[in-house]
Computed example of a mutant assay.
Amino acid sequence: MAHQNWTFGFDADDTLWQNEVFFRTTEAQFIELLADFADRDHLMNQLMEAESRNLARYGFGIKGFVLSMIESAIQVTDGRVDAATIARILDWGKEMLTHPVELLPGARAAVEAMAARGDVVLITKGDLLDQERKLALSGLGELFAAVEIVSDKRPDTYARIFGQRGARQSLMVGNSLKSDVIPAIEAGHWGVHVPHATTWYMEHAEPPIGHPRFRAIAQIDALSDLVDSL
């Protein structure tokens, strides 16, 4: 298949570079910090509930995660959490916001290969400043024809972004079935799932097995062969 009139969308976090593992590391530190007040399961439930409640207020990303940890600490300690504990949580957030970018194996080669076949667009959600920072440090910025940092990923998000490119067909690549693959397919595009070892619980979804525009690959370095087979 010729791809001259195609647009290829890439997710960023946990598709091109590491992200979720840093949240899980900080989460484990949070559990240990408050172990005297509640057991692990209770702390995890409190944190997950806070994150779910706060998405509409703070959006996706590190800042909302930090605020949810602080809120959870206040709740499990019945308001007795001290300033030193809150300061520790804030420091973790600052460390996460300055962490080096770690490209995943094969990520650069995959983007370069798709850029040789058509337009390549980065489509990522989360905090604007943090995503801009990570893109700048990744060294991948010059490969993208456009960069879209959005508050959420829904079918209308992909319809708008891919529609602006004017391509005959479009394909979205990402590690999240819920955010990257399913809504892109629902918008009429191809969705390619590249699983990551660590996936946030709120990004879990059932794969649309059997859908004609759904594909799954074990590693991103298999993308070129997959696209050439379409």
Rank of each mutant, 00 (worst) to 15 (best):
H193M: 03
D152T: 11
T77W: 03
A50L: 06
L223S: 05
A159S: 15
L103W: 14
G191F: 06
A110W: 09
I70S: 06
K94C: 03
I31G: 01
E206S: 12
Q18R: 12
R40Y: 01
A159E: 10
M96A: 06
R133S: 06
R213S: 13
P212R: 08
K125F: 06
V111P: 06
R215Q: 07
P105R: 09
L226A: 05
G174D: 02
G79Q: 09
Q46A: 11
A38P: 05
F8Q: 13
I149C: 13
K134L: 01
I86R: 07
D39I: 03
L122C: 08
S72R: 07
F214N: 06
M114Y: 08
E132M: 12
Y58D: 15
A115S: 15
A56M: 04
L103I: 09
G210I: 10
W190Y: 15
P195S: 03
D41C: 01
V150H: 11
T85A: 10
G163K: 12
D228I: 03
A146R: 15
V150M: 14
E132N: 14
L140D: 02
P105F: 04
I209N: 09
A35P: 02
R88T: 13
Q131A: 04
I31L: 12
A136D: 15
G188Q: 11
A205K: 05
D130G: 01
A159M: 08
W190A: 02
Y158S: 06
P208M: 04
S151C: 03
A110F: 11
A187D: 00
R57Y: 07
W6G: 00
P208Y: 02
T7R: 08
A109W: 01
E203D: 12
T124P: 12
D156K: 05
R57M: 07
W17K: 12
T77L: 02
N175E: 04
R108W: 02
L122W: 09
I31T: 04
A83H: 13
V66I: 15
G9M: 10
